[in-house]
Amino acid sequence: MEFFFQQLINALQLGSFYALIAIGYSMVYGVLLLFNFAHGDVFMVGAYIGFFVSSALLGLNIFGALALPLSVTLSLVLVLTLIISMALNSIVGMLVERIGYRPLRDAPRASAAITGLMIGIILETGNLAILGPQRRSFPELIQSATINIAGVSFTNKKILIVFISILLTLALHQFVRHTKWGMAMRAMAYDYVVVPLMGISTNKIALMTFALGSALAAAAGILYGVAYPVLDPNMGILFGWKAFVAAILGGRGSILGAGLAGFLLGFIEIFVATIFPSTMRNLIAFGIILIILTFRPHGFFGEPFSAQLRL
């Protein structure tokens, strides 16, 4: 039983990363009918931004001067790192939109997909060229501790990662459901042409969509760094593809759907690995997803979009 609960929290942790990244894929698809294939690498960039921001913050003398207990200092650094990196990475996302995708607004969707793949390669190789091939180790922002709940012990890191990612998912869901910008995003998903006639700039809404998705990807990157403190330029590739699959599974355009599917993917992977040899993990996990999609091609929460609605 204890083993089961520990695997459960492992699955939730892995699912957290998939969920946060999948939401970025899903939002962009929902609003612009575009798969942003650079998103996995935006996650990687977010993790690196988090690495530099946290290292810089830890190097500041101000924390030494304040003479706070170490755990308080580290928590403060974690929160600041999250906020600053999310803001910086949203700028990265907006640049991707502005430079990569906006010129292709009226082009066939395949052109945009190819551009996305190229932007991804540029981000990976750019990182390699500028920072070199060595891996970076993410600073330890949470002091490991073990929490015991009803006889099952968890590390505090895992709990915090799951908590933060659920919180961000729900916050974004609220934002999209209940604010004027979120409403404009949803309207764009249904009919793009009339939104400007309401006095709303679709370019601004597109930028905002990319900014929000990239901010969440940065959060995923930092939490990833907390969990597995090794960063390398290609870390976004496999994670990005898996999160993309989660976005499809959740239903394109649905935030909660993408979040839930991200966690589901985490569960499938972890529990497949406990039953079968771990070399077969991805094979079996994605086989299961293929079967699910055969029966639910729109995913769990997707509304059947028709592409002809759009420009």
Partner: peptide
Amino acid sequence: RLWRYLSVLDHVKMARY
């Protein structure tokens, strides 16, 4: 050209946003 899954009220509110 309506937004298929939005409510009537939301349509009108959108024009005010």
